[in-house]
Amino acid sequence: MDYIVPPGLYAVGHPSAEAPVLVTANYKMSYDLVRQQMAERDVWLLVLETFGINVWCAAGKGTFGTLELIERIRHSELAKLVAHRQLLLPILGAPGIAAHEVKKRTGFTIRYATIRAQDLPEYLDNGMVATQAMRELTFSLRERLILIPVELVGAMKVSAVIMAALAFVVSVFGGATAAVAAVTGYLGAVLAGIVIAPLLLPWLPGRSFSIKGAIAGMVWALVFSVFIGRSGFTGPTIFAALLGMPAVSAFYALNFTGCTTFTSRSGVKKEMRLALPVMGSAIIACLLLLIGSRFL
């Protein structure tokens, strides 16, 4: 499927030389969102080549960037089409664009308008003044919810391999019941990290994502232990589950930092330095216990 719009200058409605110029990425969804919001208006839309990536991610990678914007202004001969010298950019495009450079090299002044395209109509009607809410990032339950399917698909391949390996090894040494239990336990731990931790993010205790994930995983591990305890599994196996499962959930919750709108690179680095060795040790201890309980 093609999610790319050819970069360049587009007219929405019948824009005059005085009409505002909005800048966006050539990810089809970004382009469509802005166009929908401007459906009843006459504006110019300058689409940058971001190779089908959204504004924020492209700005982070530098494709929604100063040089591309300057090139696109020149190439589209924008200066001949509009009488004014002002561009409206999405606030989340700012990490890629040096506004003063663009001004120096093209004469166009950049105004960072709003974060969300949905706020553009109100922004324009408001005399191009952004309210506090238009400049503030959020991370609502709905915003977190729509990210989860993408994360699930991303984790599917690795999880499938691990579950197949678990099922095979455990069924050889422990039989079918144990294999079903192992796969269920693992799958639950993955889901606790990918689905439950992001959904309950503001309410799970701690600032660290791995701790939030470990708590979600521990709750699942406790429920799971009660079930396998009833099915006749003994101390070491249960202890192994309580060690290994929260570690798996913690890893996936930690990975969710990449999807949030508020975590920093330095924070994630710090957390990884502290949490990865703990997770690794817990997994190793879990496996040793499982192997040990088989031979003791």
Binding site: A59, A94, P95, A99, N255, R265
Partner: peptide
């Protein structure tokens, strides 16, 4: 995210920006 640093015309702001996922 680095938006402030790149948009500061007098380079008064410094920040180590980059990928922030595990």
């Amino acid at each position: 995210c680095g938006a402030c640093a790149i948009n500061c015309p007098v380079t008064a702001i410094q920040v180590e920006s980059g990928v922030g996922c595990a």
